[in-house]
Design a protein around this nucleic acid. Structure first.
Lengths: 254, 254
DNA sequence: CCAAAAGTGTTGTTTCTACACCCATGA
DNA sequence: TCATGGGTGTAGAAACAACACTTTTGG
C-alpha cells in the first residue's frame, strides 16, 4: 500500500507520514495500456519485495481521493488521464496479507508492529487507461515498473490479482455504455486495434463487420481520410475518437 | 460519519474510538424501502444536529468493511440483508463539511479540533434493500429514524444528498442486470408493486404488459396461484422472487 | 502464389415498443 | 354505474448475430 515512494524517501515518509497522510487508506491503481494486440496492466516491484504489485499510493490529509489517484498515476507514468475511474473499495481484514506486508517493513528496518503503516488498510481501486507509447517506464534502482499482458499476470502482492479481476469485471459491464479504448489508443488508429481491445476485455472474438457497424452508430468514433499501412496487409482506413463526445460520456460515469 | 452511536455512549466511544475504529473512514448506508407506492430512504437525525443524514457507521480495526456495513444496517433496522451493495467511495476534502461537523462535536462538548473524529473522513457508500414492513423504526430520545420518499428528501448533512443521487444512478445502470426489488417486497406481491419500484427508480412510467413480459423472461420472478385482492380493483395474481436465482445474481455483482 | 487482414451487404432472429379492448371489484 | 387497475395479444421497428467472397499487400 505504501511502498510508493522512492526508497531514499521511504523511511523518512514512513516516520512522518502520520501527520501527512490519511491513515488506513490507500489507492490501488489498475493502469491499462494496449500494445502488440494485447491489453496490458502496469505493475510495480520494489527490491525489498519479491512480488509484483499494483501501483499504490496514499492520500494526503487535505487531498481528494480522486486527486490522490491522479497524483499516483502521474508519478508512475508521467501522464495525466481524465480516464481515471474509481471502481471499488477493498476492505477485507485479511487482504493486506499482514505477514507479507510486515516482512517488507522488516527489511526496511521497521520493527514496530503498531506503526501506522503496519496496520490494516482499506484500499480504493481506480482504473486508468493510458496510451502505451506515451508512458515512460521508469526503472531506477529500487523500483521496477513493467507492463504485463492481462493473461500473463503473476501472483501478486496481497489481493491485487483479485483487484485486477474486479476492475475487468466492472469494465465489462460498462463496455456498452462508455467509450472504452479512448485514451488507450493514439490519435489515429485502424479499427482493428479498437476491436482487439474489446476482444481482450470481453475475452472473445467479435465479428469485424458487426463491430464496425456498432461502433460507428455511436458518436464516439469517426472515420478519417487517412490510410494505415502495415506490411503484408491490405491498407485500412484510420479512425479517431471524437473527443467531446467521449469526455461527455466519461463525465457521466464519474 | 460518526454520530452513529446512542448518545449515552457517544462521548465514551469518541474518546476510546481511536483504538477500536479504523480512523478516517466511515460507512454511509443508503437504505431503500418501498411503501405506499413510493421508494423510500431511511434517514437518521440526532438531536445534536438539525439536519437529517444517512445512517452511518465506523469500521472496527479488525472488521471487513462489508461486515461493518452489515452491522450498521442491523443496528439501525434490526434486519440482516444479503442485498447490501457497495457502490462508491466518497473522499472529497470539502465533503465532510467540517464546520457543520465540528459544530455538532462542540455541542457534545468536544472542543479539540485535532481529535480524530474531527478530521476529514473518507466514506464508503453502501446501498441496501429492505422490506419496509419488517423494519422496526426505533425512536429513542436522542436519535430519530424516518423514511423519506425519494422525491421528498430534505437538504441533508454534508454531501449526503449527492450520495443518494449516486446510489440511484448506480442502481439505474444495474437495473437491467440485477433483480431489483428482491428484498424490497414481501414474499408474495402483485406485479404492479414491482413495476412501481422500477418506475420510481427509473423516474418514468413503464408499460404494464411489456414490463410483465420482460420480467417473466428473466428467471428471477415466477407467477403464483394465489390471488391478491384490493378494494375497488380487479383481483390480480401474485408473484414471488425465485430466491436461488436472485441470490446467484447478487453474488455476481458483489 | 500465399498468408494476412480489410472492404463490403444481406438475411433471419430476437428484442423492444406502442397500443386497445374487455373484465372484476367496491363504492 | 363508475373509477380503478388487471388480464391478454399483435404488429411494426430496431438491434443483433451470422455469414462469404473479393481485394491489397509484402514476402
Amino acid at each position: 500500500m505504501e511502498l510508493i515512494m522512492e526508497k531514499e524517501k521511504i523511511i523518512d515518509r514512513l516516520m512522518n507520514g502520520e501527520a501527512v497522510y490519511q491513515q488506513g487508506i490507500s489507492i490501488d491503481c489498475v493502469i491499462f495500456g494496449f500494445h502488440d494486440r494485447m491489453l496490458k496492466v502496469l505493475l510495480n516491484k520494489f527490491n525489498v519485495s519479491d512480488k509484483w504489485m499494483l501501483p499504490v499510493g496514499l492520500i494526503m490529509k487535505d487531498e481528494d481521493i480522486d486527486a490522490a489517484a491522479c497524483r499516483v498515476l502521474k508519478k508512475k507514468t508521467g501522464l495525466d488521464s481524465i480516464y481515471l475511474y474509481q471502481f471499488h473499495a477493498f476492505g477485507s481484514t485479511v487482504r493486506p496479507n499482514l505477514k507479507e506486508h510486515r516482512d517488507i517493513l522488516l527489511k526496511l528496518g521497521l520493527r514496530d508492529e503498531n506503526h501506522w503503516i503496519a496496520q490494516r488498510f482499506v484500499s480504493i481501486g481506480y482504473c486508468a487507461f493510458l496510451e502505451y507509447s506515451k508512458v515512460r517506464i521508469r526503472t531506477d534502482g529500487d523500483e521496477e515498473l513493467r507492463w504485463f499482458g492481462i493473461d500473463e499476470i503473476p501472483p501478486l502482492y496481497s489481493d491485487h490479482n483479485g483487484i485486477i479481476e474486479k476492475a475487468l469485471s466492472v469494465i465489462r459491464t460498462q463496455i456498452r455504455i462508455i467509450p472504452i479504448g479512448y485514451k488507450l489508443l493514439p490519435e489515429k488508429f485502424p479499427l482493428s486495434e479498437l476491436r482487439n481491445i474489446y476482444e481482450a476485455i470481453l475475452g472473445r472474438e467479435l465479428d469485424r463487420r458487426n463491430f464496425q457497424r456498432k461502433i460507428l452508430s455511436t458518436e464516439y468514433v469517426r472515420k478519417l481520410d487517412e490510410i494505415y499501412r502495415k506490411p503484408g496487409q491490405k491498407p485500412a482506413v484510420m479512425f479517431s475518437f471524437v473527443r467531446e463526445k467521449c469526455e461527455e460520456a466519461l463525465k457521466k460515469i464519474t
